[in-house]
Design a protein around this nucleic acid. Structure first.
Lengths: 239, 239
DNA sequence: ATCGGTAGGTGCGCTATCGAACATACGGTG
DNA sequence: CACCGTATGTTCGATAGCGCACCTACCGAT
């Protein structure tokens, strides 16, 4: 159970109607989410759903040969575990904490009960799922058509949006894993950005110096996804 | 309204509980779905949802520069327009008939009413949506890591599964559009398959001669998606 | 029988990205 | 303060796919 009103630093929790929030407060469990933690494994049954507050989580697909690709990023605007209420108890992807922080979780059974009330919670979660679908679709198209340089910018911007401040802790190796490219490729792309004065990079710490600069270099995919999230998940939700 | 029991050649319609089916029968409209028809445009409000019977529909993302990429394929196992009940009235993608045929459609308002009964229909549609999500996620990963040769095999297999018979009507140009690659690339890949005796190709008609051969050449993505569809959408659904 | 349009096949130079090997450099630990 | 592991930077040859130009072949219409 959570006494902290900080739980509402997750935007889905923040827009819960008062009645639901009163119930949930009893059941939400605050959890640390350390770097690299696996929230669920491909094909495994989901026992909790997670609502990140300060952490960022990647949904990754890991191929048979070990290569991986990020399918979507989830931060304090969303939740991990939509497959639970969509009716598959699992998904063929893995959820990994990409940036350490904390969040909240709810037991699967409770989440299902709440969803099945078929009220505002359900509609909120479905709209969120729709936003997530958009992100996945855009990722598919972006993987097909855009350069590593552009994708790195997109990725940095997506991460920035989910953090406070302009600093992120993230090695190039990690980023390469997420984007499904070679580490050297990320090094080169990051150097270009650094030389252009858009970021500063040092041993796992990235400082974004010129956000508009990144936005100018990224592909349309970033804006499309952001617009869709804003459209589907406004700060105030009609209850 | 539809008198034909053939409506049930769409697998989602086929597993509707009797009570729902009785209601729907009055409302379903049979429609021709000619090659190239756009069922909905990116960002446009959805007025109907579609249940293909013999047609195949591609969900495409079209980029600003005109390049396109297929996000998912929908045939008689599914429906087009999940964004409707997910709560966005639109999606930033386009739905195009990729293989002509017929299908059924339902007015948006009716679909929403049925969904909001929060009964078996809702759960069926959500499970379907989950399967669709898997397909999109896999497409993203596949676009990142697999060769055009492999992807062509995947695409042919996905199409085969949604058709009766082993023949499909489809120019290389069209396939290139779907896969988001050059037409020449498809030509080369298709030639390899033809020389290996797996398919025969002639002016927009493809004959699959050796399906197991295609399965042997494709990437894991095909099997992962198929397995997940079978898991989430069994022929008989508990009501 | 000819013509024109569409579908498919080929060749060529170019670029992004890969895979691998190796070089440097920072920073915490003892 | 010396050491070592991790993080980053550099180079090089290989290759898949691109963009473009052009060719061939088939089909149907006049």
């Amino acid at each position: 159970m959570v006494a902290f009103s900080e739980a509402r630093s997750n935007r889905l929790l923040a827009v819960l109607p008062d009645a639901e929030w009163a119930r949930w407060q009893e059941q939400l469990e605050m959890v640390e989410m350390p770097l690299g933690q696996v929230l669920y494994e491909s094909g495994a049954t989901l026992h909790h759903v997670y609502f990140p507050a300060t952490a960022i989580v990647s949904l990754l697909y890991v191929m048979e040969n070990g290569a991986s690709a990020e399918i979507a990023v989830v931060g304090n605007e969303g939740m991990i575990g939509v497959a639970l209420f969509m009716g598959g108890e699992s998904t063929p992807s893995r959820a990994v904490v990409q940036s350490a922080g904390y969040g909240f979780r709810l037991r699967a059974r409770l989440m299902l009960e709440e969803f099945n009330r078929a009220g505002p919670v359900m509609h909120l979660l479905l709209r969120y799922t729709q936003a997530l679908i958009t992100q996945m679709a855009q990722t598919a198209a972006c993987n097909r058509h855009h350069s590593l340089d552009q994708q790195l910018c997109r990725w940095l911007l997506l991460s920035m949006d989910r953090l406070s401040g302009s600093q992120l802790t993230m090695t190039q190796e990690l980023i390469a894993n997420m984007l499904g490219v070679r580490r050297e490729g990320v090094t080169e792309a990051a150097l270009k950005l650094q030389k252009a004065g858009l970021i500063r990079y040092a041993r796992g710490h990235i400082n974004v110096l010129d956000r508009p600069g990144l936005e100018a270099r990224t592909c349309e995919c970033y804006a499309v996804v952001k617009r869709e999230y804003d459209r589907l998940l406004p700060d105030q939700v009609a209850t």
